[in-house]
Structure formats: C-alpha cells, structure tokens
Design a binder for these strands. Structure first.
Length: 925
RNA sequence: GCCCGGGUGGUGGAACUGGUAGACACGCAGGACUUAAAAUCCUGUUCGCCGAAAAAGCGAGUACGGGUUCGAUUCCCGUCCCGGGCACCA
C-alpha cells in the first residue's frame, strides 16, 4: 500500500467533520487551554503561503495540549469589515456583504485544505449583525462610563452625575478641560445641553472635533498613506486638512494601567518596549514664559520640557505651526514669511512631516522672556514640533539636544553653553551628569539635582508645575465610510443620545451608492430615512470588532450577553495568542483597553486579554526576474549578461516573472510563452540549454508575481507535508523568504515514515513484539525532544527530531507496534492525517486525536559512558569515551595516557586539566 | 533621525544555561536498481593545505575589529551591513 495522501486526507477530514471531532464544550472537568490566532481580513486575493504560518503553529500547539489532556478552545473567524470591500463595491457595484461572503467562502476552503482543528461552530464575523450588536453594546458601555481617577477604574457616568449634584467636580477634574471647575449649585444651574457637553469631556467614548485628510476632488476622506506629497495617491488631487466631528476612545486614561499590565503578561521584550514607547510616559514640567510681541495679544507661552534644569541654556523657542494663535505672534516684518510657512505646512501630511529630515522653520518676530535672567528669546515656528504633544511648544536648548542644536546651526542662532567642557561645539550632549555653568541659581549643581530645584523654584514663583505627559493620544474611533458598524447614537438638538439596548443591533442599512455623503460625511448621510431618524452617519473603524472577539468565541451564540460570565470565567485569558508584529501598538493596545474597561464594569473577571503572545515572522517572497533586450521580445539568460547589466551593448529590461513557472532558477520557457499573450512569440537566448532567472527577496504580493498558493502545494504534496514544511522552514518568530524547493525533503520524510509501517506490495509490516532497549531509547529521546520543542514553540527542530527518529528506526528495520503507536501520537499535532490513518491501520481503537501523549521515562535514555571531546588549550584534538562515573583523577589518568593527547604534551606535565562532567575535557599546556 | 530584530556552508537552518560549529533538510557530485525514466537506496559535500586516492593530520572559520575566559556563534565594547516599525515626542 502506498502513501496516498490525497485519499487519506480527504477521508479523515470528512470523518472528523462528521463526528464533530473539533467541537469544544464549555463544560469539562479537564484543565482549559485557549489558543488563538489573530483572525484574518478575508481579502479577495485569498491566502498565500505566508498566512498559515501562525495558524499551523497554533494548530500544532492546540493538538499537543489536547493530547496532554486539556480542553482546548481553538477558534477562527473573520475581521470582515474593512476598506477593500468598500473600494471594490465602489468600483464594481458589488455589495460589500456579497463580496465578503464570497471571500470568506474561499478562505474557508483554503483553510480546510490544510486540516486545522478549528471549532467552526464558534466562528465569528465582525460584520454579522448578531456579532456587531455586541460591539455596539460595548460602545454604549464606554459612552456611558467615565474613568474615575481616584480609584483608577471605569465607572458608570450616572455615578459622576450624582457626585456633581452633591459636590461639583472638585474631586474629578475634567480630562478634556482641566481648568473647568464648578460646584454643585453651578452644575444644577447649567442647561441640559451644557451638562451633556461637560459629561462628554468625561466619557470613555466621546465625540469631539478632529482633523482629517479631505480631498475635494474625490469627495472623500483619505487615510494617511493615501496621501502623497500633499495630493491624493489616486488621481493626484489636492488634499487639505478639514475639521470633522469625530468619535474617540479615551484610551489615555488607561495609560498607566496599560503600562502596569505589561509586567503581568508574557510578551516579548521587543513588543513590550514598542508599547511602552508608544504610550511614552515622561516626567517633566510645564513652564510659562512671558511674551513680548508687536501685537501684544499673546501674553504667555507655555512650554513642556523634561529638562527644566537647562532653562538658562534656552536660546530659542519653537511653536507648532498649526496652533491658532501663531499668526498673532508674527511681527509686521515677519508676517509674510510666517504665512508662507503656514501654507507650506498645511500642504504636508502628518506622515511626511514625520519622515522629513531637512530642517525648516521661520522666526515669528516675537520673543519670550526668560523668567530668571530676563533674556529675550526668539520664538520660531517649525514643523518638527507637533501641536498634539505636550503644550505644542518647546524651549530649545541647543547645547543639550541634538535637534535643537541642528536647528540653531542651520539658522545661525547663537548657542549658550551651560555645561562647560561637556559641550564641544560640534554636537549636542544630552547628559544629566554635568555640573551646570552660566545658570544663575543653578550654577554648580549637577543637572540631575537641578531638575528638581528648578521645578521647585518655578512652582514657588507660580509660573511652572510638574507634569506627567503621555505621548499616546486618544484613539480616533470613527470613519466616514459605509462598511463598518453603525453607531447606536441619535443626535437630538446637538446632543448625542444613546439608543436603548433593546433596539440593538442597529443594522447597517442597504445603500444604492457607496459614494461619500456631503461635506465629508459617510455614505450613510445619503440615506434620507437614516438622516430623518437623526442617526449618526459615521461608522466604527476596523479595530472595533477585533477589540473583543476573543470573548465572543467563548460563548458565540449568546443572545442575551456579549459572553456569559460563566463562559468567560471558565476560559479566562487567552493562553497563547499568535500573530504578526504589525499589530503591536494598534489592535493589541485597543483590545487590552477594552478588556480593562469590561473588567472594571464587572462583565468579565480578568483585565488582560492575552497571557502569552508569540509573534510570527513574515514570509517574504523570493521573486524571479527575466531579462528582455530593450525594444524586442528576446529574453537573455542571466549568466550571459555583462557585468554592467547589458547584453552585447544593448539595454536590458528586468521583468518580474511568475515564480510558479520557474523551477529553482530555471525558467520553464514553454510555460512562459503561455503566461501572457505578449510573450507568445518570445525568443530565448539560453546558457547550457537553460534559461536562468535572477532572484530577489521582496514582500510577497500579487504584483510581484511571487505569491505561492497553499492550495497548489497541498494538492501536490498533501496537507501534512505542507504543515510540516512551513514549520521546518525555521523558527516561527523569524522572517524568511519562501522557497518551494525544500518541500520535497519533508515529503520524502513522510513517505519514509509511511514505509516504516507499510510495504507497497506486502502491506502492513507492523508486528506486536516487545521493543528492544535500543528502540526504546530512540523513542524516549524523541518523546523528550518533541515535548520540549513543542512546549517552547521550536517547531522546526521538532520536525528535525522526527526525521532523525525515522532515520534511526528505518536503519534498525524496527516494526514494533508499541514503538510505532507512540510515535504516531507524537506526530499527530504535526501531521494529523497520516497519523490517524496509520493509527487505524495498525489496529488501534478510537481516534488518535484523543490518544494520550506518551510519557517520557528517563531510564530508557540513561547512558553509562560518554564520548568526550578532549581539547588542548580549547582546540578539540581527540574523542575519548569515559564512564560517567569517573572522577577528576581517573579522567586525567585516562586522558594523559592517550597517545593523540600525549604527543601535544611533549613529555611535560599539563598546567591544568578541566573536566566538566557530561560535557568536555580541556587540557591546558 | 529614533526604536526593535537579525548577520553561521552554494541555500533554509541547528548548536536550549559559555563546553565537539554546521544537526536535520535542500541543492550539487558520484554510484546502485531500471531498456529508460520516476520512485527508492548508498557515498561525498565549510574553506584551504598535504596527498594518486583513502585514512589520518595541519591551518583558518559563525559580518568586521578588539576584550573577558582554560574555552566565545553564545558575554562585554566599538564598527559595518540587511530586515521591520515609527507619531522628529522635547
């Protein structure tokens, strides 16, 4: 019987489906394990070989935990709202729900091909009204809550209203408007609208004003990456910033808890660092400077600095250009330059400003007065200072800050040195250890000490105060789009009124056109009935549905709650979460915040969603190129080109060619002529009868013709081979280029594995006889290795161990049922189909999916002696087998008596003999 | 510019806590079986030197230059290159 993987795999997939082998119960005496993949956006392009990498890893881990006796939740679903479907709808008139459904169907088929153990009865789709009902419900919870800073928790806003009625807002500073203070009587005197406006500044989900990239010509709002050089990527139309009503999540209130939570979860240090940097907590102070300007309409400039100790080294101020009052600073002489600069900045996207390396800015003509020495400090504006961070203004200290230094140098601003020899005039020195000079009352102090002293003095003078700042901003939570969750909000006389929970879900209405509404509103603004009901016309962003989906899997069909408390208490945190680093600061922060809010409000019992996160690397494409003689249809093999890339002096075009018609580097010229009509009459200049292509590692994408479809590989080699090969490629966390060539080796391995059990003619070879010590040693070494490697996600080395084990058993012609049965269980997580088939072939009952993972017993692998490497001065010179019982003295005797060692000693005694038991021996001479 | 990864044979990678560098594969070369091919199996494969060859031996070698150590792919300092991320964060 030969290894007919096509038949075996289809057959067992059918059986597993029929028997509900992957259905998971919420009611089990077994310990639980929750293994989750970041769910995919079902794009029209389908899966390529990069996508399943993480899914295979989590699938192996899930199956492994199941064999180890866990009740394993391993669900899958779709992040089904998103821009591409809407764009496709605009271009082709197909409703996003229709194209999404079709794409999901295709994804499902591709996923099923690979043989995953997902419990599909728990599938979720964020675009399903039964799902987004609860996304809307959570939004209403956030809308109806505020963050109580006195105990650091989200609480219902009704409690805040009660407090306001009793004592005003003395104990609860407004996050959005810190200077607002009112007492109970004042609160009661406010109109309903005024009260609602104040409450909006406290809500965790709130409505405010925000700037968007508005493109008049396209009549739509654009994402940052759709704007290039101030014009739209599509069409090249002008883009301006426009203020629109926007919803936000007050994630900044959770900044400290998001930082604290990182200490309790198992994320990579790199990931924690990224989140920490994103939140960006800094300790500094705000300082007010008096302003001297021609117009004299601005009397104070408030800056934020982490280094108040350097205040005597301030040589200029920089203000963010977009602050409203900037023109007020301009002197008559500078007004034109300031206006020109503001126009320039307006045309630039945020992204461009960030990437900009060249220094730009303009002097306003106004001065700030140093409060300690009365010096007049010129005030500049420059795009390197952002309005959204701190106060939108900085005090620039060129001797201590690199950017300030370069700015001063570029514009010829004189530099004050306050750190003596620590500053060399060549580059800034950001030290905190220097002793201050030229610094008034701070002179003679180390900078570290002066920070506190400076703040103390500023506070006494009433012109400065300590301030903790966060880099993170509140999360914009609305989009002017169609294909997203509608907000369950009605606008009545300018007040946002939540819909009653009983009216959820607020279903996304049918539209005839996906075109944007008037004035940058979303397509929902085009529906008269919608507008008549005064419903919010924005929709929620892509990350809304993905911020809580891990909870829905636990109880996916619950119509009364987002997830029953019983279910969420049983499954608790996700034990293993696998996904890419691109979500480091988006999805992972948002879902952590939602979890904390739901925890605060008592809906779930844990405040961190993911116990452990593993990041999968990106699989890059290995592109192939052909060389066409410019202006002809003649293609030259790579090796025939000159060093300068020409052929017989003629220019060459380097073109991407579909990797699927290249075998390694050799082009299938037949297939090439059929690939595209324009190549039908292509001519080839070959080397050694072959056409050799060039290659480059690039991102995998359709346009580069370097995508590989898993379906093709599964068809050719089977799912088990594909699964093991993806793992064999290297560590999951690492990025690596895809190379189909190596898959043959893994396929050969599985065929060899099969032949341990089966002979093509004779059939089953397995015998029920006692195993030898040698066989048991091989088995138990493998058990130990597979268990350790799977537990630490080292799947590539686990595959190697299987290969080694099979090579050794083949060598021994071992056919013992007891050995091979255990081996089948070991390989089940990796190659479930072949394992199940052989499990039944050798006469085992039940499914191998539920077999017990073999228990490692050290006694079978114990050794009595070791072949030690013996080194002379660290260089290995011999291998001597010595008993593990031997002591230092005995070892020295044996080693020094060895002829190949003795010759290095030339009769002299060694200085030292280092003997590390079970490791090595080193003779020092 | 800043932050995070990573540089090991022709290729993917292994070496888990400082202890035989290159496991396991791919590719390549040679051979067996076959009319032939596929499949399968066997042998070799870091580089250089020495050798007719084999065996054995010698030297170098984990991006580069230093350091610590009996011993460094692993730890420390400096440099270069590649990949990814970013909101110039005061």
């Amino acid at each position: 019987m030969e290894y007919n993987f096509r038949k075996i795999e289809k057959e067992w997939q059918r059986v597993w489906k029929e028997t509900g082998a992957y259905k998971v119960s919420n009611d089990s005496a077994k310990p639980k394990a929750y293994v989750l993949d970041m769910f995919p956006y079902p794009s029209g392009a389908g899966l390529h070989v990069g996508h399943p990498l993480g899914y295979i890893a989590s699938d192996i881990y899930s199956r492994f935990k199941r064999l180890k006796g866990f009740n394993v939740l391993h669900p899958m679903g779709y992040d089904a709202f998103g821009l591409p479907a809407e764009q496709y709808a605009i271009e082709n008139g197909v409703h996003p729900a229709v194209s999404t459904e079709k794409n999901i169907e295709n994804f499902r088929k591709q996923l099923d091909n690979i043989g995953f153990c997902f419990d599909w009865s728990r599938e979720v789709r964020t675009s399903d009204p039964a799902y987004y009902k609860w996304t809307q419900w959570i939004f209403l919870q956030l809308f109806s809550s505020f963050f109580n800073r006195t105990n650091g928790k989200a609480e219902p806003i009704s409690g805040l209203v009660a407090i306001f009625e009793k004592e005003g807002n003395i104990g609860h500073v407004s996050p959005a408007n810190p200077s607002l203070v009112f007492d109970a009587a004042t609160w009661k005197s406010y109109s309903h609208k005024q009260q609602q406006d104040i409450l909006m500044d406290y809500r965790l989900a709130y409505c405010g004003e925000g700037e968007v990239n508005w493109c008049e010509a396209l009549g739509t709002v654009l994402a940052n990456d759709e704007v290039v050089n101030g014009v739209s990527e599509r069409g090249g139309y002008p883009v301006v910033k426009k203020k629109l009503r926007q919803w936000y999540l007050r994630i900044t209130e959770y900044a400290d808890r998001l930082l604290e939570g990182l200490e309790r979860i198992d994320f990579s240090e790199a990931m924690k660092e990224m989140q920490t940097n994103w939140i960006g907590r800094s300790y500094g102070s705000e300082i007010d400077f008096n302003v001297k300007s021609e117009k004299a309409t601005v009397d104070k400039l408030r800056v934020y600095t982490t280094r108040p100790d350097t205040i005597f080294g301030v040589d200029f101020m920089v203000v963010a250009p977009e602050l409203d009052w900037v023109p007020e600073l301009a002197s008559a002489e500078q007004l034109q330059s300031v206006q020109d600069y503001l126009d320039y900045v307006k045309s630039r996207s945020e992204r461009e400003r960030m990437a900009e390396k060249k220094i730009s800015g303009v002097f306003t003509g106004a001065y700030a007065i140093n409060p300690f020495d009365g010096r007049e400090i010129p005030i500049w504006i420059s795009e390197y200072v952002l309005a959204g961070y701190g106060t939108g203004a900085i005090m620039a200290v060129p001797c201590g800050d690199e950017r300030d230094f370069k700015f001063a140098q570029h514009f010829g601003i004189p530099i004050t040195n306050i750190i003596g020899s620590h500053f060399d005039g060549e580059e800034a020195n950001p030290t905190k250890e220097a002793v201050l000079e030229n610094s008034g009352f701070l002179t003679g102090m180390t900078m570290r000490d002066a920070i506190g002293a400076a703040i103390d003095k500023l506070e006494v003078m009433g012109i400065g105060k300590r301030k903790v700042n966060y880099r993170m901003r509140d999360a914009a939570f609305s989009r002017q789009r169609y294909w997203g969750e509608p907000f369950p909000i009605q606008w009545k006389a300018g007040e946002a009124v939540p819909l009653p929970v009983a009216d959820l879900p607020l279903a996304l209405p049918h539209v005839d056109s996906y075109k944007p509404g008037p004035e940058g509103e979303g397509p929902l603004a085009n529906i008269p009935a919608w507008v008549a009901k005064e419903l919010e016309t924005n929709t929620m962003p892509g990350y809304a549905g993905s911020s809580w989906y891990f909870l829905r899997y636990m109880d996916p069909h619950n119509n009364h709650e987002l997830c029953s408390r019983k279910a969420s208490d049983y499954w608790g945190q996700v034990d293993l979460y696998i996904g890419g680093t691109e979500h480091a600061v988006g999805h992972l922060l948002y879902s952590r915040m939602w979890t904390k809010a739901l925890y605060d409000l008592g809906y779930i019992g844990h405040d961190e969603p993911y116990k452990k996160l593993v990041n999968q690397g990106m699989i890059q494409g290995s592109s192939r190129f052909v060389f066409r003689v410019n202006g002809t249809n003649t293609f030259v093999s790579k090796g025939l080109l000159s060093a300068d890339g020409t052929y017989q002096g003629k220019t060459i075009d380097k073109l991407h060619v579909d990797v699927n018609i290249v075998d390694g580097y050799e082009l299938d010229t037949q297939a090439f002529t059929k690939w595209r009509p324009s190549f039908a009459d292509a001519e080839f200049i070959l080397e050694d009868g072959k056409y050799i292509c060039d290659s480059e590692v690039e991102k995998m994408s359709k346009g580069k013709y370097n995508t590989v479809n898993p379906d093709d590989l599964v068809d050719k080699y089977g799912a088990d081979t594909f699964r093991m090969y993806e793992m064999f490629l290297g560590p999951v966390e690492m990025s690596k280029p895809w190379d189909t060539k190596g898959i043959e080796g893994v396929h050969r391995f599985l065929k060899k594995f099969w032949r341990l059990f089966m002979d093509e003619e004779k059939g089953l070879l397995v015998v029920d006889e006692p195993a030898t010590a040698e066989e048991l040693k091989i088995l138990h070494r493998t058990i130990r290795k597979i268990e350790e490697d799977t537990e630490r996600f080292s799947f590539n080395t686990a595959v190697s161990s299987f290969m080694i084990c099979v090579n050794e058993l083949t060598e021994l012609k071992s056919r013992k049922k007891s050995i091979l049965s255990d081996l089948l269980v070991l390989i089940t997580p990796y190659a479930p189909h072949i394992a199940e088939e052989l499990w039944h072939q050798i006469g085992n009952a039940g499914s191998v999916l539920d077999a017990a993972f073999p228990v490692f017993d050290e006694k079978y692998v114990r050794e009595s002696a070791k072949a030690y490497p013996v080194a002379i001065n660290g260089k290995t010179r011999a291998e001597i087998t010595i008993s593990l019982e031997a002591n230092q003295q005995e070892v020295e005797q044996i080693v020094l008596a060895d002829t190949s060692i003795a010759k290095w000693l030339e009769g002299k005694p060694p200085k030292k003999v280092i003997y590390v038991k079970n490791k090595m021996i080193n003779v020092v001479i």
